[in-house]
Design a protein around this nucleic acid. Sequence first.
DNA 1: CGCTTTGCTACAAATAATGTAGCGTACTGC
DNA 2: GCAGTACGCTACATTATTTGTAGCAAAGCG
Lengths: 108, 108
Amino acid sequence: MAKQAGSRTRNARGSRTGRPIMALLDLLGRRWSLRILWELRDGPLTSRALRGACDEASPTVLQARLTELREAGFVELGDGGGYGLTPLGRDLCETFMPLHRFAERWKV
Amino acid sequence: MAKQAGSRTRNARGSRTGRPIMALLDLLGRRWSLRILWELRDGPLTSRALRGACDEASPTVLQARLTELREAGFVELGDGGGYGLTPLGRDLCETFMPLHRFAERWKV
DNA sequence: CGCTTTGCTACAAATAATGTAGCGTACTGC
DNA sequence: GCAGTACGCTACATTATTTGTAGCAAAGCG
């Protein structure tokens, strides 16, 4: 897979409307992105702990997502090891935290 | 692709913790799911209009997502044609609408 | 040094998405 | 009735992404 590093607002799969919401929607709409942010919500985790929390998702994708998420400025690798949310990432997390309540209500 | 229809709270890729948030995170963390909900936010669209709004995403995935989203009860196919959000779907949409503001702030 | 854990990578096999074409069913206007 | 058009939806070969398993180099520790 191409490493596809890039600028923060990498174009969301062709959507270069300039609307950052599209880039965000595209980034979050990738497998495990949301889950990673979710699992990191209350404190940093080591890459392996994170993997554990994510149903043993393959390290390949996890690493890829983690890189993207870091480039986006939502996640960072702490100096003592372990991935954690940046202030911005924490902010984003708050943003869709209400999903939790929604999900509980939905479940049916 | 397997049609993988199913109960609403289909298990999120192995995560059968019973936490519906996982199912939701998994469903939304699929390509185009978030985008579809987003594009439907202010009114129903025909399948083709939706495709247009989603950068001409292939009808294959769109149809797949639409089916999943319908099974989840977020989207419905109106009698006169055209896809629209259900009340529940509209609710969900509201839930992550703040993302818009966040994205604007983020963009950098 | 041996043992363990860290972040991270390789790589083949499986699965999902893309792009293009087209089907069957309406609904027009004529 | 019969073209013309738009609808929801499907087929299918090509391409991209994910999975699963194995393993690396670096760091910490006894």
